[in-house]
Design a protein around this nucleic acid. Structure first.
Lengths: 205, 205
DNA sequence: ACCTGAACACCGTTCAAGT
DNA sequence: ACCTGAACACCGTTCAAGT
């Protein structure tokens, strides 16, 4: 049974889900595929290239056309789609963030964003900035989401708060706990709504 | 001349600036400090701990009190401060994003955000969400900024646009070029202004 | 065309032993 | 207290050689 490029990619995403971004090893992937490590280099020039292909595969479908409707709902849909794709694999956000992707799917993503924002009436020379800003938010948020998953119950609740004002420090800890305890999807939606409100405001001028 | 913990940290940031995040090696850092690799483990339990300390050091000063003034200017100042700190070292954003920091400076950063947003009149239970959203944007944006630095002239301009509509694809490429060509600081300010407009809008209701 | 086997130049981490 | 020396169990990548 010969290996196709796509089998390697699928196997790599399985290893990613099992062992995380730092756990992916050419040797481990090779073993997972029942092959010697050196053999992988026939399919991918190096690990970096493999990572880029993985990142692109994660973005598959994010560039699909969006349903007709109000522009702000469309933009929201795009943002949610991107988040869902990044969440679909362990450390997906960090993987995509770490690779400067120019592959097929990434270009497709750029295309839909462009179409939607242009149809929304945003000036051509601003469309890129809006898309870049919003996707930066999605990427940053999702990285934090996936990072927080394996971290201590509440960031900062380790008791080593060095603040002199005990009452105030308690408030901060309460804030941090509230953030950590909240549904990540709700937090995401909140930030998204702020951004969309800002966008609407800027368009009404 | 004995090594102090802080010397190791400083040396590590120098290696970071020289060789990037992937280039940092316990052995290389040891050589840079004129020491054997094993010796570093007296100062830091492991590489991850070292990285966390580096991330925290990068955030030094970001938690300083902010000058009195309109709340939106204060919030903007905090966002810009964070961006500047992340930009101050090669791959700074990715370093901070990859470490779940609970150290001194990080807590201090949380403290100022809390103070400023609270004073702005944002409800206590919303303060964390706002701070989290905004810092997600800053983190995501800065990661992309630092990533784009070493990448091809214009993402997507590789000529392999698979779209059927040539004219539309040209528009997308123009958009991408416009984003890549623009001053990163301007792009950052734009997204920040959108977020702040949205925040103002939400507070007026 | 696709992969093995074996090698090369590295890694992070541990730990007895030195000073 | 702070570091060396040497080892252990790994890495990514290359490349002749096999099928």
């Amino acid at each position: 049974m010969q290996l196709r490029r796509d089998d390697v990619l699928t196997g790599a995403l399985e290893v990613l889900d099992g062992d995380g971004l730092e756990g992916i090893t050419m040797r481990k992937l090779a073993a997972h595929l029942g092959v010697q490590a050196g053999g992988l280099y026939w399919h991918f020039a190096n690990k970096q290239t493999l990572f880029e292909a993985m990142a692109d595969k994660i973005l598959e479908g994010v560039g699909a056309p969006v349903e007709p409707g109000p522009w702000d709902e469309q933009v929201g849909e795009l943002a949610r789609r991107l988040r869902r794709a990044l969440l679909s694999h362990t450390d997906g956000a960090r993987l995509v963030a770490g690779t400067y992707v120019t592959e097929k799917n990434t270009v497709a993503v750029g295309q839909v964003w462009f179409d939607v924002l242009r149809a929304a009436g945003i000036a051509t020379d601003r469309v890129g900035w809006v898309g870049f800003s919003l996707s930066s938010y999605v990427l940053g948020h999702t990285i934090e989401e996936q990072g927080l998953a394996g971290s201590p119950p509440a960031v900062g609740s380790t008791g080593k708060a060095a603040t002199s004002d005990a009452a105030e420090s308690a408030d901060v800890e309460a804030m941090i706990s509230a953030v950590a305890a909240a549904d990540p999807a709700d937090r995401f939606e909140y930030g998204l709504s702020v951004f969309l409100d800002g966008l609407r405001y800027q368009m009404e001028r």
